[in-house]
Deep mutational scan, measured.
Amino acid sequence: VTTYKLVINGKTLKGETTTKAVDAETAEKAFKQYANDNGVDAVWTYDDATKTFTVTEMV
């Protein structure tokens, strides 16, 4: 189990959160659900070296 981080650069929601998951795909599903629940529709990137997902909402 690995800890993954999500950085949110949204128009109305900004911040960071983490989740523990067995792999990046599982973490991504959890983070996308979190973003969807909070109304963030954005572009996703992932950095495997830092285990960090970044979501940037387009203006």
Score class of each variant (00 low, 15 high):
residue 1 V to Y: 14
residue 2 T to E: 10
residue 2 T to H: 14
residue 2 T to R: 09
residue 2 T to V: 11
residue 3 T to Y: 06
residue 3 T to R: 04
residue 3 T to E: 11
residue 4 Y to E: 01
residue 4 Y to C: 03
residue 4 Y to H: 01
residue 5 K to G: 01
residue 5 K to I: 09
residue 6 L to M: 08
residue 8 I to A: 03
residue 10 G to F: 15
residue 10 G to N: 06
residue 10 G to Q: 06
residue 11 K to Q: 12
residue 11 K to W: 11
residue 12 T to Q: 09
residue 12 T to W: 14
residue 12 T to F: 14
residue 12 T to H: 13
residue 13 L to D: 06
residue 13 L to A: 06
residue 14 K to N: 12
residue 15 G to R: 13
residue 15 G to N: 07
residue 15 G to H: 14
residue 15 G to V: 15
residue 16 E to V: 13
residue 16 E to H: 09
residue 16 E to W: 13
residue 16 E to L: 09
residue 16 E to P: 06
residue 18 T to F: 14
residue 18 T to C: 13
residue 18 T to D: 04
residue 19 T to F: 14
residue 19 T to H: 07
residue 20 K to M: 13
residue 20 K to S: 10
residue 21 A to D: 01
residue 21 A to I: 02
residue 22 V to K: 11
residue 23 D to F: 03
residue 24 A to M: 13
residue 24 A to R: 14
residue 26 T to Q: 11
residue 26 T to N: 06
residue 27 A to W: 02
residue 27 A to N: 00
residue 28 E to C: 15
residue 29 K to Y: 06
residue 29 K to H: 07
residue 29 K to D: 04
residue 30 A to V: 14
residue 30 A to T: 13
residue 30 A to N: 07
residue 31 F to N: 00
residue 32 K to Y: 05
residue 33 Q to P: 02
residue 34 Y to P: 00
residue 35 A to L: 15
residue 35 A to T: 12
residue 36 N to T: 13
residue 37 D to F: 15
residue 38 N to A: 13
residue 38 N to M: 15
residue 39 G to T: 08
residue 40 V to N: 05
residue 40 V to M: 11
residue 40 V to A: 06
residue 41 D to C: 12
residue 41 D to K: 10
residue 42 A to P: 07
residue 42 A to W: 15
residue 42 A to F: 15
residue 42 A to S: 07
residue 43 V to W: 07
residue 44 W to C: 02
residue 44 W to T: 01
residue 45 T to P: 00
residue 46 Y to K: 00
residue 46 Y to Q: 00
residue 47 D to E: 05
residue 48 D to Y: 05
residue 48 D to K: 06
residue 49 A to R: 09
residue 49 A to F: 10
residue 49 A to D: 10
residue 50 T to W: 02
residue 51 K to H: 09
residue 52 T to K: 02
residue 53 F to A: 00
residue 54 T to A: 03
residue 55 V to G: 04
residue 55 V to F: 05
residue 56 T to F: 08
residue 58 M to S: 10
residue 59 V to R: 08
